[in-house]
């Protein structure tokens, strides 16, 4: 069953003014429950705007979005941002609980479980300022999983981290996802990362239209060093290069 369905979605900033600019145009796709979908594309193609529209932070100009929940109630969302977005004056555990619906023992235990999964159980009483950037981002990831979301949105969560920390976190994310099987929409400009993590890659082109929808049918867990992963990465990169050439030609 589709958790997220998007039909003919468009977004124009500064509507009705001379500065009006369309960043998303005629976007339609759906995401089935338990799948990991990545949205890739060059800078400025509307990836983050699309995620913000799905999350409700941004409003869309036209089209439809629907979210469904297994529970029948309103769909619950988790969001991992580019930066950790933690309350600096609250401890790690209080940050985890800030976004929870209730304060039951079960919820606290779940928050602890995800902190433990990202290796930060011992740091529950620390303030975010006492953690490194990578550790703060791990709290952000644990927080998003701990709300038991119907849909988990991730906006280039590793882009601000150094390569080694990012690689470690990607592996950790794969492990947590394999256990929780949450539905994920993951925005990245890094094709290599997208192939490593996703079941499906949606490629956006400049102008905010879908260029291609690619299925990644590779066994998990995946590592960038696996030859099959590397081959597919090269193939997807090739398709993106072709798209860029096509866009440049069209622009010229």
């Amino acid at each position: 069953m589709a958790v997220l369905t998007i039909k003919n979605l468009a977004k124009t900033f500064n509507v009705g003014t001379p500065k009006a600019s369309r960043v998303l145009d005629d976007i339609s796709f759906d995401v089935r429950g338990g799948t990991f979908v990545s949205i890739v594309g060059p800078s400025g193609c509307g990836k983050s705007t699309l995620l913000n529209i799905i999350s409700g932070v941004e409003e869309h100009t036209s089209g439809d979005i629907s979210l469904t929940s297994d529970s029948g109630g309103p769909a619950r969302m988790g969001y991992v941002f580019q930066d950790p977005r933690l309350l600096p004056w609250r401890s790690v555990m209080k940050n985890m609980m800030y976004v929870q619906n209730d304060r039951s023992e079960e919820t606290v235990a779940r928050a602890r479980k995800y902190l433990d999964m990202v290796g930060l159980a011992k740091n529950a009483d620390f303030f975010p300022g006492q953690l490194s950037g990578g550790m703060q981002q791990r709290v952000g990831i644990a927080r998003a999983f701990a709300v038991e979301p119907d849909l988990l949105l991730m906006d280039e969560p590793f882009s601000h981290l150094d390569a080694i920390t990012a690689r470690g976190l990607r592996a950790q994310l794969q492990d947590i996802w394999a256990q929780s099987k949450k539905t994920v929409v993951f925005v990245t400009h890094d094709v290599v990362e997208a192939v490593e993590l996703s079941d499906r890659i949606i490629v956006l082109q400049p102008g905010g239209r879908i260029y291609e929808d690619i299925t990644i049918d590779l066994p998990r867990p995946r590592r960038q060093t696996d030859p099959t992963v590397a081959t597919l990465q090269a193939e997807v990169l090739g398709r993106l290069e072709a798209m860029k050439t096509l866009s440049r030609t069209a622009a010229a």
């Binding site: 932070v57 969001y79 977005r85």
Partner: peptide
């Protein structure tokens, strides 16, 4: 603004936003 957006995304209740944010 980032923290307010984060609170909106997670549907944090108004009273908790005032108290904790």
């Amino acid at each position: 603004r980032d923290l307010r957006d984060m609170s909106t995304t997670y549907n944090v209740p108004f009273s908790r936003r005032v108290r904790d944010l």
